[in-house]
Structures are given as structure tokens and as C-alpha cells.
Amino acid sequence: MTVVVSSTEKNPVVPTARSLGQGLPFFQRRTVREGIWIGALTALVTFGSFLLLFPVYFMIVTSLKTQGASFLLPMKWLPGIQYVPQWENYGEALRFMKWQTAYTNTMVVAVLSMAGDVVSAVLVAYGFARFRAPGKNLLFGLVLSTLMVPQIVRLVPEYLGFSRLGMSNTFWPLILPAWFGSAYNIFLLRQFFTTIPIEMDQSAQIDGAGPMRVLWDVLLPQIRPALAVVLIGSFTYNWNDFFRPLIYINSPSLRTAALSLSAFQAVYGGTPFHLLMAASLVNIIPLVVLFFTLQRYFIQGIVVTGVKG
């Protein structure tokens, strides 16, 4: 990738007629090289997205086939041309998974957990990045160590604990842990806090800002991309989480979407792949919308380099 450029870049100072390329051989002109670079990148990115999106295309194609035709060979790739698209699969899939109940539940769990994840991780990460505490490094090591405990180890005792509290078959076991901070998010936000020069805190403190004020006005605006990562990651995780709802939720009225998706297996005497794919596609739409909305925070140059007076 980089080879294209590095070889010819000799001494490009502030743009002058010469550095812009007049009088240079064609391929050494700045504008031309810039064009080649952008062209190559675009080609590469487009190719990459085709490769990555192939499975999604496969899902779409399968979701529009009839029962039993999903894996018939040779594969038919063009709905509407090679076969009649069965749009009613979507209605059937949604009715089968009782989508109003499933998505109301999932929304409640995912939104409340996400809120907890963000609030707790911001506070704790701020503490680790900016405040003194005896044994802080040891404590941070402990935070990291919880990342290493296999989930399987915690499962049984955690389940027994929540049942003893009378919380099984409620949303509490799915939401409550998020409010105590997850090691992953704490570590992530701490890394981003530490990239901000401490002088910025100090000058705000001189102006009389308290710790909360420093966090809110100085630090958080600068780590917006990382906050977006936490929001997206937490929401996606809770939206798709299958394991914990499986263990804690029994009543059909409390089922989340991930649970209802798994109910497609072993019905109709075998998994109805066309319905499973249709339901899975519907399931990722909210996630795609969320990502698309938040991705505008991944734009260079929003970083504030001074402290508000």
C-alpha cells in the first residue's frame, strides 16, 4: 500500500508550483500520486467489503427461498431472476418468534445494560487514570484478571447467587451486573483517558473546576470515539447475548430475541433455514442503524486542544 508513495516523496514543502507537480514527470506529480493513492485505496476497500459482505448476501438470498430449497444445488443466487422471492417468509418468521414481546424485552434489557456499562465504566476508568489510591496498580491488575476468568467458572455460583436473591426469571441478572463496571470497558476507557495530557485537567482545576466538571467538560468530549465503541459494543453484546437469558429466563413472556431466534431450530422437523435467516436479518437492522448513527464520532479533528475558559 505504502510503496506507491514513499519512493517518490522527496521534499514536499508548502505547496508551490513545483511541489504541486508542474514541470515534474507525470507520475511524480503530487496531484497524480494523490489520485493513484485514492484510486488504489477505493479499489481495495470495495473489494474487501465485497468479501466481507458475501455471507450477508447469502443470508438474504436464503431468506427469500421456500422451505427446503435453501441448500438445493446448484445454488441459486439471484432472487427474482432464478426464483420467485418469498417475501412472506419475513412475516412468518416474525410471527413465529412473537416479535412484539421478544423485541420489547430485548430493548429493555439492552438499553438499561448499556446505560449501566457506560456510566460505571466512565467513573471507574476516570478513577484509575487520574486519581491516587494506595495499591492502585494491584487493584488494576485485579480488574484485568477478571477478564481472564473463563465464563464457565463463574456460571454456576452466579446462578445460585441470583436464585437465592429471588431474581431468577426476571431481567435483574441480565441488567444489574452491567452497573458495576465491566473490566473490558474500564480498561478501554482508561487507555483513552491516559492519552489526554494531564495539563488539561490541571488548567481546568486552576479555573476552579471540580473532578466531575473536569470529567464532563474536559475529558469526555475528547474520548467520544471510545464512548461510541463502548455504546456499540455493549448494546450489541446485550442484544445478541444468548447464554445468560437462556440460563435465567423461563417464562415465554420474558424471552429476549436471541432466545426466540434459537427456537427456530428443531421445529417443522428440522431447522427452517429460510425463516432463521429472515429473522436473523431483521435482528441486525437495529444494530446497523445504531452503528451508522454513532460512526460519525469516528471523525478526525473533533479533538479539542484547549481548555474552555
Partner: peptide, 30 residues
Amino acid sequence: WRARDFQGWLWASPWILGFVLWTLGPMLWS
């Protein structure tokens, strides 16, 4: 030690509480 030296613990308290509640017990048990 002054109170401000312990501020870090205060900020980290949600995590510490969560650790004691959900993680420490299971770990010791295992």
C-alpha cells in the same frame, strides 16, 4: 495519607463492589 489519596478507591468503588458481589465468591468457590 490524606483523604484525597483515597479518591481513586472512591471512583473505583462500583467495580470493587461488583467484584465482591459477583466475582470473588465464585472464584474462591472454584
